[in-house]
Design a protein around this nucleic acid. Structure first.
Lengths: 350, 350
DNA sequence: CTGTTAGCGCGTTCAC
DNA sequence: GTGAACGCGCTAACAG
């Protein structure tokens, strides 16, 4: 019932007519290039502002001038996003940078990894995006091959060493591991449990290696890692598994906060209290950590600025015509102390 | 260093050449319309599949055929999105529907409400989207006027009665209020506190009215509402404010789960335990409710399918050329009992 | 220098 | 089945 009559979108032709010049002149004026006198330019600009002209992204994209759009595929179960601490902050960070520059974010959420590849191909074929973010980098990641094949500008969100020449924005996982183990060792923990994300992810591998290296240097033991999947339940299950060990660890490190929360619950159900009986440390701080009881200590990195850095890197890469613009600074990680870490109750056997 | 040579995107012209026909014929064949013989059509389709042709969204949009993109502006502080339970699920629901149909979501996150209007105008001018979602509907919402002016197809996510003729997908807030008050009254609560979102939102108003109506019918009292802003701290503050009343309520209803969690903490700091001393009910279930201690009972609606319904409605509206396609069924709400509701400890003073 | 004209990019559609 | 024009912005070539 409401009025749904499309109004006329302002075009360069309209402006040209009103200003009494040709469309070409308008284009020169609007893009600040020579070819029109200052006064004509001023007149054209005034008219353009008056009619609220905005360039047609479609027309520009058609000309090959880019779409002012960047793409992100999130390969996760949709329902997981409601609580997933990482992506929403990451997206917010991306947004803060790109929207300033007139870019928009094209988002796709799908649980199917195979589909992700198709999406890049389609986005590229349909000229929907000027570049994409690659997250959850895996060893021998097939997406990098596709990117090379298509010549689609991209920024790898992860370890530059595994980005195969693509622009990358890393995260200082080694530094985080260092501070985690150091802190735990100082508290007196001699046996640490480590619950990770999927083994195929590069950053899982990086963290595992770093933890082991630091631990052996400091003379503390990391019991065999439990590879997990970031969900609450998997965190709880991993905790149970580790606590069932003959010589259970006295401190547990998790690759996200959701799993850490799951572990707190699992410990509680066993009659163990955190942190007196068991110390728990989350990797990646989020509001969840302060919402949890007790409040979770975490290896905090500023995910929002991580997203912002990634966005800057992608925009730079796009402007460079897809040429790699080098690796960007890793976002800093620091151990945020709250209430889930303490000295182990009984001294480690040893 | 990496190879960044753009490959050639397949176009209709290429297909035409390979198949030895004109571009027009290819277009007819590809779109399943008459004008080509069956065998030519088959040949064209084979070539198209072989080269992996995907229509250029830019070219289609330029012709006026739509951009296969829908837009959503989230007017919130970016950092809030990391924990905000509503939007990420809502987005996931939208995604599940639109990606099936080849549509993509254009997202913009900004804390500035004024900017939201500009964004719609720019998206429309630049032909970036075929339609938009309008959330957080307010009384006399200026966005609806703009939509009318632009003729931009939209779906209002909220009360159809305030959608001014636009397609709307509602939420059964009245039903939720009904079950909330009924349940609380049955437990013996005679005085209920109500902590809402901003007063300017239509759905805040709707919920307030519904709560009052049901309460007066059932003979229970709703103490004056506290208008709040969905944050954890504001929930805690509101709880304190209500508990400081001369005759404090014995049960509190919150318009989201974050505020409810804040209230639990505030109550605990006062030495009150939930639910023995104070019952707490959240509106909008999310994983946070089961993560909280005690687990929060909630007026649950399936936000993901809410998003999915909204997406279907928007796509329908777009296909109808922007004509309103009527109001859609409200998503169902039900009271999900967990551990934060109990009978009041001391009987209410008569 | 100031401005105009023509044609491109890509898919669609109308007239032939 | 084909040729041509269209939508919109950009730019190379050209004219005053």
């Amino acid at each position: 019932m409401g009025p749904r009559k499309a109004a006329a979108r302002p075009t360069i032709a309209q402006i040209a007519e009103r200003a009494g010049v040709s469309a070409g002149a308008v284009s020169y004026a609007l893009n600040g290039r020579p070819g029109v006198s200052d006064e004509t330019r001023a007149r054209i600009l005034a008219v353009a502002k008056e009619v609220g002209w905005v360039p047609s992204t479609a027309a520009r994209a058609l000309r090959g001038g880019g779409t002012a759009t960047v793409g992100l595929v999130i390969t996760r179960e949709p329902q997981m996003l409601g609580i997933e601490p990482f992506f929403m902050s990451f997206v917010a960070g991306i947004e803060s940078v790109i929207s300033e520059q007139g870019y928009a974010l094209l988002l796709q959420v799908t649980p199917d990894p195979h589909r992700e590849l198709n999406t890049y191909r389609e986005w590229w074929s349909a000229r929907r995006v000027d570049g994409v973010f690659i997250t959850d980098l895996s060893l021998d990641d097939a997406r990098l091959d596709l990117l090379d094949e298509l010549g689609l500008p991209a920024v790898v969100v992860g370890d530059p060493d595994h980005a195969r020449g693509h622009t990358a924005v890393g995260s200082n996982d080694a530094g985080a591991a260092e501070s985690a183990v150091t802190h735990l060792a100082r508290l007196g923990h001699a046996r640490i449990g480590h619950v990770t994300g999927p083994a195929s992810f590069v950053h899982t591998r990086v963290r595992v290696d770093a933890m082991r290296a630091v631990a052996s240097r400091l003379g503390v033991e990391v019991v065999p890692e439990v590879y997990s999947d970031y969900t609450l339940d998997s965190g709880a299950a991993a905790a149970v598994q580790l606590l069932d060990l003959a010589e259970p660890p006295t401190a547990l490190v998790f690759h996200n906060d959701l799993m850490a929360v799951g572990a707190v619950r699992a410990a509680r159900e066993r009659g163990l209290s955190v942190p007196q009986d068991l110390s728990i440390l989350a990797w990646d701080d989020s509001p969840l950590c302060v919402l949890s009881e007790p409040r979770l200590s975490a290896l905090s990195r500023d995910i929002q600025s991580y997203g912002a850095e990634a966005a800057k890197a992608l925009l730079d890469t796009i402007r460079a015509g897809g040429e790699t613009t080098g690796s960007y600074l890793p976002s800093n990680a620091q151990l945020l102390e709250r209430d889930s870490l303490a000295a182990p109750r009984r001294l480690p056997v040893g």
